[in-house]
Write a protein that binds this DNA or RNA. Structure first.
Length: 414
DNA sequence: CGTCCACAGGAATGACGGGCGG
DNA sequence: CCGCCCGTCATTCCTGTGGACG
């Protein structure tokens, strides 16, 4: 039985289907996709393979520390080598296993340990157990099941910053208490200065081997994009200059392959939506804007109430667009907003912290300035267009009510 | 020069909701 | 169900500080 909606959707679907096809396989542009071939990283792959190979003979492989800026292929290389290692191990009937943990995503010691437990086949609750307990279970299972585990700690700097290096230290020493199982660590960090934060003992055992990944050059990026584009797009969907532009725009920033791939994918999606048969340079430029915009909107939507209120306070201080708002004034406005909404007021210390957080995620720009005799504070600017802030905050159940509010503390003189 | 403003931002501590094992 | 530990967010208390003013 035909509902009215059916015709509607039918036309949407069929419109889509008769449009020129751009993508052959869009999966290969996602950044968790690990390609079968990683251009310009053959050396690193061979090297890492050599380091891990002893695991196939039942020996513990050396711990490795890998440095490099984001999007330089660290994660891809490690995942690639690890999966091949595990595969080979299975073929040979051994029990080599790998465990990939992104420490920033995991966030805490506990969840990292939980991931390791999962990798050796035991399950632990999301939370509730003492860390030591989880650690013991992990060690016991590792030994009992005679597993050779390679643990990859991606963005390990985030873990140490948040939690300290105690767990890392324990993990580097875990082999001392093992008879049958073996554990080795691959640490990955974006931050080259990270070493300085580490306990020297942890550092020395963790970096038995060290590998540094250099950023890709524009030429290398182009090769990478070309390789993926062959898999991702139908013949002729890319105009000549598009790849070069993506590579060049990105290389100008950081040489981050992940972002270059995103750029290409989004540009292609824009072209597809417009019903164009191929991607042109204009799409790439639009994509650049769209990526930034989407990121900002998403971050803003998921902000906790008080962070939104702080952001909103800065938004309401219109004249601050040029001269910058100051912590004390922001706090005044913020308090007034809390009053209007009848929500509890956080302390200035906390609000100061929230401002810094908003600065870190790029919604505000804050820098400390000194007015000498008149104190020292942070000058704060919106780093997002006012319209975007307005639109997103207006959606909020609480903040939205005050979207056109005029704070009293702003109208009575300076 | 020293003073002293208006905060920055570190450290310790606490309240709270969730989840254990016994 | 209890006592305990967890992570998160917030408060309290604190010491530190760039530079205009006197």
């Amino acid at each position: 039985m035909a509902l009215p909606g059916d015709d509607l959707l039918d036309s949407v679907f069929s419109d889509f289907l008769i449009r020129p096809k751009i993508f052959k396989n869009r999966e290969v542009l996602r950044h968790d996709f690990v390609p079968a071939h990683l251009p310009h990283r053959e050396e690193h792959i061979r090297h890492l393979g050599g380091i891990l190979a002893p695991a196939l003979r039942g020996s513990r492989s050396s711990n490795v520390f890998i440095y490099g800026k984001p999007g330089t292929g660290k994660t891809a290389v490690v995942r690639y080598v690890l999966s091949r290692l595990v595969q080979k191990g299975q073929d040979m009937g051994g029990s080599v296993r790998g465990c990939y943990v992104n420490c920033r995503v995991a966030g805490t010691d506990y969840r990292v340990l939980a991931s390791l437990c999962e990798a050796v086949g035991i399950s632990v609750p999301f939370t509730g157990l003492a860390k030591g307990e989880v650690f013991d279970r992990f060690r016991a299972a590792l030994d009992a099941r005679r597993v050779l585990l390679v643990g990859v700690f991606d963005e390990v700097d985030a873990l140490v910053r948040g939690q300290g290096d105690a767990v890392l230290y324990e993990l580097t020493r875990i082999n001392e208490g093992l008879r049958a199982g073996k554990f080795s660590i691959i640490g990955i960090s974006n931050d080259l200065r990270f070493k300085e934060f580490l306990d020297p003992r942890v550092l020395s055992s963790l970096s038995e081997e060290e590998v540094v990944f250099r950023p890709y050059t524009a030429v290398e990026l182009r090769d990478i994009l070309l390789e993926r584009a062959r898999l991702a797009f139908v013949e002729g969907a890319l105009s000549e200059g598009v790849l070069n532009l993506c590579a060049a725009l990105d290389a100008a920033e950081q040489g981050d392959a992940r972002r270059a791939l995103d750029l290409l994918r989004v540009a292609a999606e824009l072209a597809e939506r417009e019903g164009k048969p191929c991607v042109v340079e204009e799409h790439v430029r639009q994509a650049q804007e769209k990526i930034e915009q989407d990121r900002v909107v998403e971050v803003m939507r998921t902000l906790p109430l008080h962070s939104k209120l702080v952001l909103f306070s800065v938004y309401l201080m219109k004249k601050a667009d040029v001269s910058g708002a100051v912590t004390g004034n922001i706090y005044e406005v913020y308090r007034e907003l809390c009053g209007q909404l009848a929500v509890e007021v956080l302390t200035q210390r906390r609000v100061s912290g929230l401002i810094s957080e908003l600065d870190m995620i790029g919604l505000l720009t804050a820098r400390v300035v000194s007015f000498g005799r008149y104190g020292r504070t942070k000058k704060v600017y919106l780093s997002v267009p006012r319209g975007v802030v307005r639109n997103v905050l207006a959606e909020d159940n609480w903040v939205g009510r005050l979207i056109s509010y005029e704070p009293k503390c702003l109208s009575r003189g300076e």
